[in-house]
């Protein structure tokens, strides 16, 4: 079984983002970038499937600027076998990403694609579902457990009310939720080994996809600031304030 794992380079989750003064977006220059945390979970799951003898090859794909290669190297250091880098500068929306991934799926014929459920930059939560629609495949989103069966997968999903289990036909799209696994750190020898693993480069045009955004960003602003920071001395003062000042109890 071949597994395809798309990975996205995003601002590191610990960085407090700053909105640009011209309201065109957020500041990306000189900011620490990392692999989207949900994608790390996806890579980890694929590698575990390989270690369990269920997957034969794990391919990491990233669409982005030259530096997206570092994100692919991270996946290779974790244990993916090879990479595909679709080189593209500038914003790309989930629909265009899904179209490019469809092109790669048609070339590589994987049996399973595991994606992060959302990227922590645009918070869209769309790409996996869109890819599944374009391929006419089954989808199991927000997965917290994956069991590989014979020609199908049984997936437990995190839903608003608790957990739901569905069975999906292979080939399938799975998107990861937080509790699926805890991603490993790449060891130094594996980081060195990853440098020798192959990364194939291509362009959106090679895949026949126009990456131009469909949505126009009118402006990006900071949210209204909260005036917090007031402390109370004890529980009695807290209850009194909630009752008489805030009037919420």
């Amino acid at each position: 079984m071949k597994v395809l794992v798309p990975v996205k380079r995003v601002i590191d989750y610990n960085v407090k983002v700053r909105v640009k003064a011209d309201q065109s977006g957020v500041e990306l220059a000189n900011v620490k970038m990392s692999m989207n945390p949900f994608d790390e979970i996806a890579v980890e799951e694929a590698i575990r499937l390989k270690e369990a003898g269920k997957a034969t090859e794990v391919i990491a794909v990233s669409i982005g600027p030259t530096q997206a290669q570092e994100t692919i190297r991270t996946a290779l250091a974790m244990g993916a076998d090879r990479g595909i880098h679709v080189v593209h500068d500038g914003d790309v929306e989930p629909l265009a990403v899904a179209k490019m991934l469809k092109g790669i799926v048609e070339k590589e014929s994987p049996d399973l694609c595991i994606l992060g459920k959302q990227a922590i930059d645009d918070d869209c939560n769309q790409t996996g579902q869109m890819l599944s629609a374009l391929l006419g495949w089954s989808q199991a989103t927000f997965a917290s457990k994956i069991e590989i069966g014979d020609g199908d997968l049984t997936v437990t999903r995190e839903v608003d009310g608790g957990l739901e289990t569905i069975k999906v036909k292979a080939p399938a799209i799975v998107t990861t939720d937080l509790r699926l696994n805890e991603p490993r750190y790449a060891s130094l020898p594996n980081i060195m080994k990853a440098k020798k693993k192959p990364i194939e480069q291509m362009s959106p045009a090679d895949l026949g996809v126009d990456p131009a955004p469909r949505l126009q960003t009118v402006k990006v602003v900071e949210p209204p600031k909260r005036e917090g920071g007031t402390k109370v001395a004890d529980v009695a003062e807290l209850v009194s304030k909630l009752k008489n000042e805030a009037k919420v109890i």
Binding site: K16, V26, D121, L215, V218, V220, V221, E222, P223
Partner: peptide, 12 residues
């Protein structure tokens, strides 16, 4: 976007 640390106005 960015966990609510920025608000984007988008036009479709």
């Amino acid at each position: 976007i960015y966990a609510g640390n920025a608000l984007a106005t988008v036009k479709s």
